[in-house]
């Protein structure tokens, strides 16, 4: 195979790996958005906190890696419950703006608490995943990336089955569709919300654990969530498959822009391109690729 083509394929493959991470983060956002119409600005903080928690479970408490991940997930889930109960429940029925602002306040609070609790040093996760990359016909993938792709796939499948077949999943979908009707049908909307926050936080925890394996752990991890914003919108706010496709698309676009455009235009178009693409897509499809067009009644 010629080198140019290999270069392209490798860019796309590593873009997919990066995209899985974005997709995972985006799903965390979309779960809450879909059910409650709230963009949770504190999502990045949850990701960062989970990375820290997992790190300290492994290093300070010497837990085996898998157990640590499980515990991190449980802690994140509990955090979701608590957040919903203490912060969001009192805001039920209040204007969306105020609720979004509360999540901004929460993000400020959580970020500084992370600094207080875990310090500001750059930490290195003692990753149990072997560093040796896997080579398949010249294509290179690190084992962390393979695990990341697998977990994303598994998580998405679980979500799919859960929303499609389980009673609670149906209740959640109903709530997302129309809260009032859901209430009338005897769905406990409060319970649904609590669960949604917990599930979303757990998703964030998974992405946090993977980020811990890839990057240095510090407070800066929160900003990764911002780079996932285009992924949410590109796919359309209400759609989980949309978030996944959006995430993958953004990952690939980012890498291709880095590999090709950066040498022509220069100056770091890699991190701007996703936003430009997003802007253009919104010009053509104002509800993202898979978002549903709202039918308004006056």
């Amino acid at each position: 195979m010629n080198a140019g083509l290999m270069f392209f394929i490798q860019l796309v493959i590593s873009g997919i790996a990066l995209g899985c991470l974005y997709a995972l983060i985006a799903v965390g956002f979309v779960l809450i958005l879909k059910a409650t119409d709230i963009l949770n600005f504190a999502q990045g903080e949850v990701i960062m906190l989970s990375a820290f928690i997992c790190y300290f479970l492994v290093t300070t408490f010497h837990l085996p890696f898998l157990l640590a991940i499980l515990l991190t997930g449980i802690i994140a889930g509990l955090m979701g419950f608590v957040t919903e109960r203490l912060v969001l429940r009192p805001m039920l029925g209040e204007p969306v703006f105020a609720v979004v602002m509360v999540t901004i306040g929460l993000s400020i609070f959580l970020r500084s608490m992370a600094g207080i609790l875990f310090g500001h040093n750059n930490l290195v996760f003692p990753s149990p995943i072997p560093k040796e990359a896997v080579r398949m016909g010249g294509i290179v993938l690190s084992q962390t990336e393979i695990w990341l792709m697998l977990s994303t796939f598994v998580l998405i499948t679980v979500f799919f089955i859960f929303f499609k077949y389980s009673r609670m999943g149906l209740a959640m979908r109903g709530t997302a569709d129309d809260q009032d009707v859901a209430l009338l049908m005897g769905i406990s909307v409060k319970q649904v919300f609590a669960l949604i926050w917990a599930v979303s936080f757990i998703t964030a925890a998974v992405s946090g654990v993977f980020l811990a394996n890839i990057m240095v752990i510090n407070l800066g991890l929160t900003f990764v969530a911002i780079s996932a914003f285009p992924a949410i919108i590109l796919g359309g706010l209400e759609s989980i498959p949309g978030a996944i496709i959006g995430g993958l698309a953004i990952g690939i676009i980012e890498n291709l822009a880095g590999g090709y455009l950066d040498q022509i235009i220069g100056g770091g178009v890699k991190d701007v391109t996703p936003f430009v693409v997003l802007f253009l897509v919104l010009m053509i499809r104002p509800y993202g690729l898979f978002g549903k067009k709202e039918i308004e009644r006056v």
Binding site: F7, Q10, S14, L18, M215, S227, G258, G266, K270, D271
Partner: peptide, 22 residues
């Protein structure tokens, strides 16, 4: 030979490394 941008919050540097390698 190459001048590439690597942002401070970069999750990974695949495109940069691959370009340098190429």
């Amino acid at each position: 030979v190459s001048e590439l941008v690597l942002p401070t919050g970069a999750v990974d540097a695949s495109s940069q490394v691959l370009t340098l390698q190429k």
